[in-house]
């Protein structure tokens, strides 16, 4: 009989306590991030520098060494580089990345000597056709980048190279750059 009344008392007090806990959640801020349209800053800006998004190539500093093409385990990178007979310069005729095949492993950006091929923080790649997933970076044949002996002086190339080397350095560090918001959103 004592158990009977203690059951009632326990029910009432535990429900009272539970209701007060749930009520206290009414004045707490919801955790939901309303991606993609109702967020204070674009989600891409909150990602770390080495976030592995869609691949991008800075043709200005690509040496045409084909290291990335060889590194790619699923052959989603196709490069055509030929030496021009007259100017003796390496010409890039084709640099295609099939984003539909890419598995974002990052093996291509590791051997790149200049940090030309790198992941961006973009990840919204949805499209209506497979063809549009094929990114063609070379529209018209261009000369590959030829590293200079001393420090780079061309003011148009310096920012690209700085960024690329920082990308590589960052990878060499064990923890990487843990600060978010440094990613290049371009």
């Amino acid at each position: 009989m004592a158990g009977y009344f203690s059951n009632i008392q326990e029910t009432v007090t535990s429900i009272f306590e539970g209701m007060s806990i749930t009520f206290s959640h009414f004045v707490r801020r919801p955790y939901t991030v309303q991606y993609p349209d109702r967020i204070p800053i674009p989600i891409q800006d909150t990602l770390p520098f080495r976030y592995r998004g869609i691949l991008e190539v800075d043709l200005e500093i690509c040496t045409g060494c084909l290291a990335c093409e060889r590194a790619c385990p699923i052959d989603c990178i196709v490069i055509e580089a030929k030496k021009d007979k007259q100017t003796k310069a390496m010409m890039l005729n084709r640099f295609d990345i099939d984003i539909a095949k890419c598995m974002y492993c990052g093996l291509c950006s590791e051997p790149c000597p200049t940090g030309s091929i790198h992941h961006t923080s973009q990840f919204e790649g949805a499209d209506y056709s497979l063809e549009s997933m094929l990114r063609r970076f070379v529209k018209t044949p261009v000369a590959a980048y030829k590293p200079s002996k001393g420090p780079e002086t061309d003011p148009e190339i310096v920012p690209f190279l700085d960024r690329g080397l920082r990308y590589l350095d960052d990878f060499a560090k064990p923890g990487g750059s843990s600060e978010p918001g440094e990613a290049d959103a371009s």
Binding site: F16, M19, S20, I21, S24, V27, R28, R29, P30
Partner: peptide, 26 residues
């Protein structure tokens, strides 16, 4: 007593001031 319990649970949660959100609109 009920609202004192609510306040107790809020204090126990150690919330930052920005974690409080009173408006029903979001």
């Amino acid at each position: 007593v009920f609202f004192r319990r609510v306040r107790f649970h809020l204090r126990r949660a150690n919330l930052k001031p920005s974690d409080y959100y009173y408006s029903p609109i979001i």
